[in-house]
Simulated assay, not measured.
Amino acid sequence: MITERDLIEAREAFCLLREKIAGVIVGQEEVVEIALWALLARGHVLLEGVPGLGKTLLVRSLARALGLSFSRIQFTPDLMPADIVGTNVFSGDGFRFLPGPVFAHVVLADEVNRATPKTQSALLEAMQEGQATIGTETHPLPNPFTVLATQNPIEMEGTYPLPEAQVDRFLFKAEVGFPDEGELVEIVRRNTEGVGIRLPEPILSADAVRRAQAVVAEYPVPRPLMEYAAALVLATHPKSPTAPEAVRRYVQYGASPRGGLALILGAKGRAFLAGRHHVGVEDIQAALRPALVHRVIPNFRADADGVGAGQLVDEAARAVRVP
C-alpha cells in the first residue's frame, strides 16, 4: 500500500533529479521530462535528432544522477547480437556465460540505427521482458532497467530504418531539437570555460527508483480517460470509423495497443512530476505525440505530399471528443 509519505518522498527525489540534469543539459526540458516518464513507467525512449545536440550527454547525466549501473553500446554496421547480450565462453571447467553490456540498469544504445536490423533485434527480448536468452538459458536483467536509444534521422547517410517491431518497443519517442541562440551561447560557454561539463553526483538509488515506480503505478485513472486514450489510438487507424479524412488518406498502419499503454503511463508520469494526485485530460494530451508519433506509419502518398506522422497524430486527436 502506497502512503502519502511515499508519494512525497518519491516526488521530491525526482524533482531533484530533474534539477540535477538541468544543471548539465541546456534547454531540452521536454526531452528530459519524457525520459523521466519512461523511467517511472519502466519503459524505454527513442531520442531522435541530428548529431551534436547532446543526446548522449543527456543519457549519461541521467544514469550518473540515478547512481545506477550504466553501459553504452555504440551501434555500428559490424556490431553483432552477441556483442550486446553476451555469449557463452569456454573456460577451464567448461562453458560460462559472459554478460554483454545490456546487463546494466541504464543502457545507452548510441546511434541505434547505424547497425543492421539483425543486430537491432538483439534488444527486443530485453526491452519487452527484462531478460536475455542465450542458448537454452534465460538471464534476468537488472531492476530497474531502461534503454535510451539515440537515432539520427533515417534519411542520413549510413543508417538503417528500425523495424516496426523494434520501434514499438519504445514507450516514447522524443524529438531533440536544435537550441536557440541563447541556449547555443550557454552550451559554448559551458564547454569552453573552466573545466567544462561535469556530470551530476549520484542522488538516487535503485531502491528509490523502484519505490517511485510503484507510486506512479498506483495513480488512479478514471474510466472516461481510459476510453479517451483508446479512442485516440483507434482514430489513427485508416479503417476505423472514427478516423478523420487525413488519416484515411495518408496512414498505412495506425498505432498499436502499446500506444494506449504509453498514453496512460505517460499521463501518470506527467501528473506525478507536476505534483498532482490524479491524471487529467491535459496529461494524456501532453503524452500524445511522444506516445504515438513513432507508431503511426505514413504511406507513400504522405511522403509525396510532405505529410508527417506528427501531423497525422494531431489530426486524429482533433477527431476525438474530449471527455
Rank of each mutant, 00 (worst) to 15 (best):
E33C: 00
E4L: 14
V209M: 07
G266A: 05
E157I: 12
V185P: 04
L7W: 15
A246Y: 11
R210W: 13
I197H: 04
E19S: 14
P257A: 07
Y253H: 14
D283V: 05
A165T: 08
V102A: 13
I25S: 07
G52K: 07
V195C: 13
R270K: 10
F145E: 04
I154W: 03
A286N: 03
A212M: 06
G182A: 15
P179T: 01
N299V: 04
V106L: 11
D6C: 10
L263D: 12
T133I: 03
A304I: 13
E48V: 11
V147E: 08
G260P: 02
A65N: 06
L171E: 04
A109F: 03
T236P: 07
P153V: 00
D83C: 00
T242C: 12
D314L: 05
P290D: 11
H278S: 15
A165D: 13
I8C: 01
G135C: 07
G54I: 02
M156T: 07
P244A: 14
M226E: 15
E186W: 00
L148V: 06
A231V: 06
P142M: 07
G275L: 03
I297W: 07
L39Q: 00
V195Q: 15
E12K: 12
V176Q: 10
A317V: 09
E129Q: 05
I284L: 15
P142T: 02
Y250I: 04
T116P: 01
G259Y: 04
K239P: 00
R276N: 09
V216T: 05
V233R: 11
L53V: 13
A304M: 09
R190N: 11
